[in-house]
Amino acid sequence: MLRREAPSVVAVEPLGAYSLLRVERATLECGDPGQFFMLTPPGRTLPRAFSLCLAPPGELAFLVDPVGLGTRALVELQPGDRLPVLGPLGRGFRLDVPRPLLVGGGIGIAPLVYAAERLGRAPAILGFRTPEHAKAASLLQGAEVVIEPTYVTERLSPGRDVLACGPEPMLHAVACLAPSAQLAWEAPMACGYGACFGCAVEIRGRLRRLCVEGPVLTAADVVPAELEAA
């Protein structure tokens, strides 16, 4: 059953290059880490997909990188403004893994913050483009932080159950290094609930809807077998 509400904005807090958008939880569920919500920025035709970053009591918080018309409209929201929120949607991370390692890149650290909260304590490696972007690592206490030209994949330790989210090249690299990894993928998405077929990505060799099959996929879903073997 889809749940859509228009809760009030609590605050928009700058966090380095990003902003943390906090809204009232209303009757919405938090869902599993890696699941996502569709937020409709004022004045835009389409909603935008965001995984939950934090679940403070009575609130939902999303990490926003203001790079386009929609995300800029979101960070300009004022406390008390109403924001349409649909979710939680999709399939999140499986948390029943013995040796979790959280691997995040840039804005992709968002679902890992909530995953860390739900897992209790888990080691994390977070990579960023610049020190300004890396300020968001403060959301995940104790995380190892690398900044380009160092990449998170240089720090992956073997024998870990990787939960990763980040840019596509990072996810492909992680998939090749950690075949059992769970990867939170991203694609342009108009609806988030299987209606538009816009978010198709190649999964197990065919174009499938990421919002239905994912956004969390396994490395085997996305890496062709021959590449993995190589």
Partner: peptide
């Protein structure tokens, strides 16, 4: 039909574009 390759959707002023391609 698998449909057209991604990217399949884009927002525009006052609307959107799609190229799903009859998947």
């Amino acid at each position: 039909r698998d449909g057209n390759a991604p990217v399949r959707i884009a927002e525009i002023d006052c609307g959107m574009l799609n190229t799903i391609g009859l998947a």
